[in-house]
């Protein structure tokens, strides 16, 4: 039971990270109907930017707690802004010229952009792993492992709390943004019918750009969380995280923000439980098999709208 609880905590944490990335996929897919293959790499770039800022600001575990929190908030904001520029640029160079063209073309440019980003980071930051000393240590002990020490100590670390809380806050504010602001309305209008939206005076290009910007900044948040949680990043983390986040987006129902979050949570849980109870080696197989099964039996995902075949 204790072991189960520990896996649950770990799964929710991992799921939050996947969920944050998945939002970027789901928003972009919703609005222009393409898999933004470079999104995983944007997440990776965001993670690197956060790491560099942390090192540049000299943040270490020795920094006083209040200052540490403030500094991390600063890192978060700057990383979100700079990563957003990366997301914007990729859209501008690789996708916008192909708008309204042939469907496979942006898929190929997305793969090209993904390869380019990965290798750009490899060239500019080196291929080596970048380990970061943990900034937060400690947490709550939920169980003490029993008096005789036979049980398992269940830990809920501060960093896990931080990750989940930040995710919930961001999710809340983005859902508000999409549901209640003009930008959100334009976005939903573009999802429904881009041509009609533009006839009604919605600036479609700008709306799409903003979608990429939002997706990228959320990915950079995920990047920072990933860095703090695992403590090590390299230029290749984007691929697997990206594929799993896309899986999460599809699982939850592509185009749906709560769906992306739910899908993220489920993928995170499946992965941790699989590693916890079966085998670590095959955790990716578990995630991908779930994806295949969901798509085959429930192509619209958990919270998505079914696609009606028009004849």
């Amino acid at each position: 039971m204790d072991y189960f609880l520990q896996q649950l905590i770990n799964g929710v944490t991992l799921g939050s990270i996947y969920g944050l990335i998945a939002i970027g996929y789901t928003m972009v897919y919703g609005i222009i109907g393409m898999i933004n293959f470079a999104h995983g790499d944007i997440f990776m770039v965001g993670s690197f930017i956060a790491l560099i800022l942390i090192v540049a600001l000299g943040i270490t575990a020795a920094t006083p707690v209040l200052l540490l929190i403030l500094a991390l908030a600063l890192v978060l904001v700057v990383a979100m802004a700079l990563t957003a520029v990366w997301g914007w640029t990729v859209e501008r160079i690789a996708y916008r010229p192909l708008r309204g063209s042939f469907r496979l073309a942006p898929l190929i440019t997305a793969i090209g952009a993904s390869i380019a980003l990965q290798n750009f980071v490899q060239v500019s930051q080196g291929a080596k792993n970048k380990p970061l000393q943990p900034l937060f240590s400690g947490g709550f002990q939920l169980t003490d492992g029993g008096a005789d020490g036979s049980g398992i100590v269940v830990n809920l670390s501060y960093i896990q709390i931080l990750i989940v809380v930040t995710t919930v806050i961001l999710m809340g504010s983005f859902t508000y943004l999409i549901n209640n602001t003009n930008l959100g309305r334009s976005q939903r209008a573009c999802e429904q019918d881009r041509k009609m939206a533009s006839l009604l005076g919605v600036n479609v290009d700008r709306t799409i750009s903003l979608t990429f910007v939002m997706g990228a900044s959320l990915a950079s948040v995920a990047g920072l969380m990933f860095l703090l949680y695992y403590g090590v990043i390299d230029f290749y983390i984007g691929f697997l995280a990206g594929v799993k986040a896309f899986t999460a987006a599809v699982l939850g129902g592509i185009g749906s923000l709560p769906g992306a979050m739910l899908g993220g949570l489920l993928i995170g849980l499946i992965e941790t439980f699989w590693s916890g109870y079966f085998s670590v080696e095959y955790k990716d197989v578990a995630a991908f098999s779930i994806l295949a099964i969901v798509l085959i039996f429930m192509p619209e995902g958990l919270l998505g709208q079914p696609e009606v075949e028009k004849v």
Partner: peptide, 21 residues
């Protein structure tokens, strides 16, 4: 060596934008 994958990715983007078909 290390630049060639970078260039490879960029070339993919450029060719596709130039000739989507």
């Amino acid at each position: 060596d290390q630049y060639r994958m970078l260039v490879f990715g960029m070339i993919m983007v450029v060719i596709m934008v130039w000739k989507p078909r």
